[in-house]
Design a protein around this nucleic acid. Sequence first.
DNA 1: GCAAAACGATACAGATCGGTATACAAACCT
DNA 2: AGGTTTGTATACCGATCTGTATCGTTTTGC
Lengths: 204, 204
Amino acid sequence: MRRSEIRNHLLETALRLFNEHGYHATGVDLIIAEAGVAKTTLYRHFETKEDLILAALERRDEEDRYAMRAFVDAHATDPLGRLLATFDFLEAAVDDQRFRGCIFVSAAGEHKETVDPVFRAAVLHKRLTLAYFEELAYAARLVEPKRIAAEIHLLHEGAMVVAQMSRTAEPVRQAREMARKLLDTAGQSSTPRIPAQRAPADRI
Amino acid sequence: MRRSEIRNHLLETALRLFNEHGYHATGVDLIIAEAGVAKTTLYRHFETKEDLILAALERRDEEDRYAMRAFVDAHATDPLGRLLATFDFLEAAVDDQRFRGCIFVSAAGEHKETVDPVFRAAVLHKRLTLAYFEELAYAARLVEPKRIAAEIHLLHEGAMVVAQMSRTAEPVRQAREMARKLLDTAGQSSTPRIPAQRAPADRI
DNA sequence: GCAAAACGATACAGATCGGTATACAAACCT
DNA sequence: AGGTTTGTATACCGATCTGTATCGTTTTGC
């Protein structure tokens, strides 16, 4: 295994174990055993366990938001449909048998001090996710994009927590339906209408 | 301190520390130090730390649901207003400076196995809370009480998680507004109309 | 091809974990 | 009043925690 591969492998192993057992309950001895790596090696790549946690969360944050973007782009073209497609992405994640709740919410739950770097990393992920929803809401020309995005975000979080307990994807489908109704009654700025422009735009 | 007082004191101390630092991060040595009690005493009241956690969650579950009922009864008379008042109760809880997220969600986040007694205790609390929402939805004669109750529940969970990260009560107010709109468009069975009966009922 | 860096294996440090043992004082019940 | 229970205090158990030190081997970069 090359050096860069080891780092990747350690991050992936740690993320899997953090997701399975939580952060405090996952010792570095377990991580190195599962990764098949010496303890010295782990501590050459990461100064402390907290650094490993932070790097793992950062990695997961990027992966997760990139994957959501890719999924949404592949499953919907119009901005409103894209906002709804985020729930389909979430449903797929929840349907995965490895789903055990949002690792960022769990991280914040185990590191509750607002100055704790782990807590801050979790908050950052949520802020960036919210920013993506705002981006979609702006693109949909909603009259209150920030408010709608915050509502979508709240529905995502609620669906994830309820799904964490029920271990079914039903809450996600319900949240999607709530979002659909919400978007139905949300006002759209009428300047250049999307449907009126779609035909020529599709040809470009 | 009498025997029953010690048990209460231990449960309250443990709940405070679990809320502040989480479950794994709170050792029994810290609990007994903060409670001002010998270790032998703790283990005479609770067989294991897990038993203490379970007893603490059970205690908090009952307190919490009782307090919500009392608050709701005191702040609203009509069933629809009661469903909304649950958010006012939540807002007060979140506004408390000690709020660090839902302790049941954190408990489930640290004990992820569905067979883990702690996980099951967390799930039970959520199920009982949902049952209360259903009770209110039935009383409001909504045409789909279970669906509405589940939606209210999802909004509660979402608001709590977002508030856990933002450390403000704004998400709760937003969730309340979402619930208000949701109830506005929700159908009510028209048999004995509440407004038609309210005047005489108020005099009794 | 050779020095430097990174690796694995192991042993260990010092602290903390949940839980027990022991001995003795205080409070309770009949 | 006296025996049982429940409390405090303290020392201890073995296991586990994060992190380091040592040392020989393998890989890497120039």
